[in-house]
C-alpha cells in the first residue's frame, strides 16, 4: 500500500469527520463574510487615499477579496493540528504509528483536507464579493491561480499546526497559533491595506510574510495578471515554504515518539 493511497484514505476520514460537524464549516465562513461585508463597507473610502494600489480602477471590495480569501484559508488551517491532538489524547495516533501507516501520509492527509476546505471557502468568498459588485478581470484563470495559492497557504499552516500539535500535544497551543500568529500576519500584509501607505517597517515585514505572498498572488491573478513574474515568484516561494514546513513537521513526529 503506497503512502499516496494511505493519504487518500486518511483524507477521506477527515472529510467524514468534517461533514459530521458542519457547524464548524459554517462558522469558518461566517467570519470571512463579516470581514468582507463589514470591512468592505467601513473602509470603502481608503482607496481614495492618493497612492493606494490600483487607484480608481479597483474598488475596496475588489482590493479586499483576495485578502479575505487568504485570511479564511490561514485561519482554518491554523486549527489543523486539532485532529492530531485528539488522536494523541486517544490511542489513535499510537495505533497509526505502530502500523505500516506512513507519517508522511498522516501529514499529507491533513494538508490535503485543509486545502480542499480552503478552496471551497475561497469560491464562496469570491462569489459573495461578486454578488456585492466586485469584478475580477482575471476570470477563470485568475480564480484557478488563486486556488493554487490557497492550497499552498493551507498546506503551510496545516503543517505548522500539525507540528505544534505533535510537539506540545495540547489544544491550547493551537489557540496560540491561531490567535497570536495569524492575526499579526494578517495585519503585517497587504490583505486589508496597501503597505505602501503604511510605515516602511510594515512594508518590509510584509515582504517576508508567506501570508502576504499568497495575497499578492491572488490579487494580481484576480485583477488580470498585470505582473505574471510576481505571481510565479510568490507561488514558488510559497511552495518552498510548504516544503520546509512539511519537513519540520515530519521531524516533529520523531519528537513525539521520543516523548512516548
Amino acid at each position: 500500500m503506497s503512502a499516496v493511497t494511505q493519504a487518500a484514505l486518511l483524507t477521506g476520514r477527515q472529510a467524514r469527520q468534517g461533514a459530521r460537524i458542519p457547524v464548524f464549516m459554517v462558522m469558518n465562513l461566517l467570519q470571512p463574510m463579516i470581514w468582507l461585508l463589514l470591512f468592505g463597507q467601513l473602509f470603502r473610502s481608503v482607496i481614495e487615499i492618493p497612492g493606494f494600489a490600483g487607484g480608481a480602477d479597483v474598488s475596496y471590495l475588489e482590493y479586499l477579496t483576495p485578502g479575505v480569501v487568504m485570511m479564511t484559508a490561514m485561519g482554518g488551517a491554523a486549527w489543523a493540528g486539532t485532529t492530531f491532538v485528539q488522536d494523541m489524547e486517544r490511542g489513535v495516533m499510537d495505533r497509526f504509528l505502530a502500523s505500516p501507516t506512513s507519517r508522511g501520509a498522516l501529514l499529507a492527509a491533513t494538508m490535503a483536507w485543509y486545502s480542499l476546505v480552503g478552496c471551497g471557502q475561497a469560491l464562496v468568498v469570491v462569489g459573495v464579493a461578486w454578488l456585492g459588485g466586485a469584478r475580477f478581470p482575471g476570470g477563470g484563470a485568475g480564480v484557478l491561480v488563486t486556488l493554487v495559492a490557497v492550497a499552498l497557504l493551507s498546506c503551510l499552516f496545516a503543517a505548522l499546526s500539525g507540528a505544534v500539535a505533535l510537539l506540545t500535544r495540547q489544544q491550547e497551543a493551537l489557540i496560540g497559533v491561531s490567535q497570536l500568529l495569524t492575526i499579526p500576519l494578517m495585519f503585517l500584509s497587504s490583505a486589508v491595506m496597501d503597505p505602501a501607505l503604511a510605515p516602511d517597517w510594515i512594508a518590509d515585514v510584509a515582504r517576508y510574510n508567506p501570508f502576504d505572498w499568497a495575497v499578492v498572488v491572488a490579487r494580481d491573478a484576480l485583477q488580470g495578471f498585470a505582473d505574471p513574474g510576481t505571481v510565479w515568484l510568490h507561488l514558488g516561494l510559497l511552495a518552498a515554504a510548504v516544503g520546509v514546513m512539511g519537513a519540520l513537521a515530519s521531524l516533529a513526529f520523531r519528537a513525539y515518539r521520543r516523548a512516548l
Binding site: M1, R13, R90, G91, V92, D94, T101
Partner: peptide
C-alpha cells in the same frame, strides 16, 4: 496488532468505518 491502554478508535467514525480504514491502512 496494537491495542493501547487508551481507546484506539475514532469516536467520530462509525464502527464499520473504523475497521475498514484500519484494514486498508494495514494493506
Amino acid at each position: 496488532g496494537y491495542v493501547a491502554q487508551r481507546p484506539v478508535t475514532d469516536p467520530m467514525g462509525t464502527g464499520r468505518e473504523n475497521l475498514v480504514l484500519a484494514g486498508r491502512l494495514q494493506g
